[in-house]
C-alpha cells in the first residue's frame, strides 16, 4: 500500500478534476462558453503524452549508453512510447470535438493539429520499425536510436512551428497563452491537479504493461529451461 500512494493520488486528483472541472466557476468568454472546461481534459492528454515520450526517450538513451539491463531499458522505452501514443490519440480526438464547436470544423489544418498528427505518425513508425526486425538486440538498438530522433522531431512540430506561424491554439502565433483562459486564474487550481492526475494515470497504465511483459518474459524463460 505504501508503494502505491501515487496511484491513490492519481484517483483522488482525477475525481477532483471531474467534480471541480464541471462544477466550479470558469471565466465567461464568448465563443468558448462552457467548452472552456475542456481545458481540464484535452490539454492534460498532451502534457501526459509529452511526459511519457520524455521517459521513453530517456530509457532509449540509457539503452544506447549501455546503462543497466539492456532488456529492461528497451522494455521501458517501448512501453512508455506505447501509452504515449494512446494519450496522443485521445488528445487529437478530443481536440477535434472541441475544434468543431469553437473553430467551426473538426480539422482546420491548424499548424498544431498537423504537427501533433505528424509526430504521432513518426511514433507509429517506431512500432513498425520494431515489428520489422527479428533479432532482439538489433531491434532494441535500432529502435532506441529512432526513438530519440522521433522525440527530437516532435519538439519543433508541436512546440516551435505552431508558435512561429498563425496557429489558433492559445499561446501560439500571436495568440495569448493561458492568460486568455484564466484571466483571474480561477482555472489554475483545477488545471494543474488535473495534469498531475492524468500523468500519474499514464504512468500507472504503462507500469501495468511493463509488469505483464516481464511476467511473460519470465514464463518464457521457464519454458525454455525445461
Amino acid at each position: 500500500m505504501k508503494r502505491n500512494w501515487w496511484k491513490i493520488l492519481s484517483v483522488v486528483l482525477l475525481v477532483y478534476t471531474v467534480l471541480a472541472g464541471l462544477l466550479w466557476d470558469v471565466p465567461r468568454l464568448s465563443i468558448l462558453n462552457e467548452t472552456i472546461r475542456a481545458l481540464y481534459f484535452h490539454v492534460p492528454m498532451w502534457f501526459t503524452m509529452v511526459l511519457l515520450f520524455v521517459i521513453s526517450g530517456v530509457y532509449s538513451a540509457l539503452h544506447l549508453g549501455r546503462w543497466g539491463s539492456a532488456a529492461k531499458t528497451d522494455l521501458f522505452a517501448v512501453s512508455f512510447a506505447h501509452t504515449g501514443v494512446a494519450f496522443g490519440l485521445l488528445g487529437i480526438f478530443s481536440g477535434m470535438i472541441w475544434a468543431n464547436y469553437t473553430w467551426g470544423s473538426p480539422w482546420h489544418g491548424d499548424p498544431k493539429q498537423i504537427g501533433s498528427a505528424v509526430s504521432l505518425l513518426i511514433y507509429l513508425a517506431y512500432f513498425v520499425l520494431r515489428a520489422s526486425v527479428d533479432n532482439d538486440e538489433q531491434r532494441a538498438r535500432l529502435s532506441a536510436a529512432y526513438n530519440i530522433f522521433a522525440f527530437v522531431a516532435m519538439v519543433p512540430l508541436i512546440f516551435i512551428i505552431p508558435r512561429m506561424t498563425s496557429s489558433m491554439h492559445p499561446g501560439n502565433g500571436g495568440n495569448p497563452g493561458f492568460n486568455m483562459y484564466d484571466l483571474d486564474s480561477t482555472m489554475r487550481p483545477v488545471f494543474y491537479p488535473a495534469v498531475i492526475g492524468w500523468m500519474l494515470l499514464g504512468v500507472w497504465i504503462t507500469s501495468l504493461r511493463i509488469r505483464l511483459r516481464q511476467i511473460e518474459n519470465k514464463l518464457e524463460e521457464y519454458e525454455d529451461g525445461f
Binding site: L201, W204, L212, I215
Partner: peptide, 13 residues
C-alpha cells in the same frame, strides 16, 4: 478495472 489488472499482475508476480 485498472486496479483489478494491477492486482492480477501482483498475483502472477
Amino acid at each position: 478495472y485498472i486496479v483489478l489488472l494491477d492486482r492480477k499482475a501482483r498475483r502472477l508476480e
